[in-house]
Design a protein around this nucleic acid. Sequence first.
DNA 1: ATAATTATGCAATACTGTTGCAAATAAAGA
DNA 2: TCTTTATTTGCAACAGTATTGCATAATTAT
Lengths: 137, 137
Amino acid sequence: MKTKLDILKQYGLSVTDSRKKILELFLNADGALAHADIEKNAAKNFDRVTVYRTLQTFVEKGIVHQIPTTDNSILYALCKQNCQQGHHHDDHVHFICSNCDKTICLDDVTIPQVKLPINFTKQQAAMVVTGVCEDCK
Amino acid sequence: MKTKLDILKQYGLSVTDSRKKILELFLNADGALAHADIEKNAAKNFDRVTVYRTLQTFVEKGIVHQIPTTDNSILYALCKQNCQQGHHHDDHVHFICSNCDKTICLDDVTIPQVKLPINFTKQQAAMVVTGVCEDCK
DNA sequence: ATAATTATGCAATACTGTTGCAAATAAAGA
DNA sequence: TCTTTATTTGCAACAGTATTGCATAATTAT
Ligand SMILES: [Mn+2]
Ligand SMILES: [Mn+2]
Ligand SMILES: [Zn+2]
Ligand SMILES: [Zn+2]
């Protein structure tokens, strides 16, 4: 089984308390986390700034990916595929439950292709579906 | 031709200087606008708070819709279809150009259906594609 | 024209995110 | 293991973003 420590080393990061703690939060979470969630659960011991910097590092390294929202908050979730430095393979759909507010990576639901107008070139695509999740059904 | 005034009346809003001005900005814009854009162009005369409240009202009424981003900013764009109070028909793809940074409503590109896992119910879907736009090609 | 309703501006306040720098910690090398 | 080097952290200061209550001003309805 892959430990927090393994993951940090695998991505070439030095192993520190805050990184271990924040990574643990992701491993135990059943949905995506907002900065505020992490701050609430981890920042008792760590400075706010450290949380910002850790999340930024994790995104850069490809340990977590970001999920866009329309409420001025970014959500973060563990990358499950083989994401690497500056190259995410985050082609799955995200689901936000309007009842329990959890955001879930639907790792098996691939973002469908779309035909863009002529002269538009695609680099990345994100898809967020809102609705009612299986638990709230 | 439908004027600013018509639009405001159509949605049951009282006609005020700030609403007219902000609506004008949207009508003249060739892409989506961030709060900051509006503040920069309109807030010479209006208070910041008024911009917040106006955008909120426009979203509620269905005059503009929001576009999610991963940079802690919300973008707003005019609704072109028949959106109404609390019921947006915003089923088109949004395109963010990584070169010129403009965000464009691809009104003719419909968000494709996705098959959700069992016991998940869909309410809304948003899709944001990044890449290079026709002007920057 | 007047009254009732609604929107605005202002001030205060809270929340969110960034930067520089010194101290602390971790990794690399002997 | 001890020492050196590189990296990370916390703090403080600051800038930017968003929300609220309330008095005043503007708009709409009568
Ligand atoms: Mn995901
Ligand atoms: Mn749009
Ligand atoms: Zn739910
Ligand atoms: Zn462009």
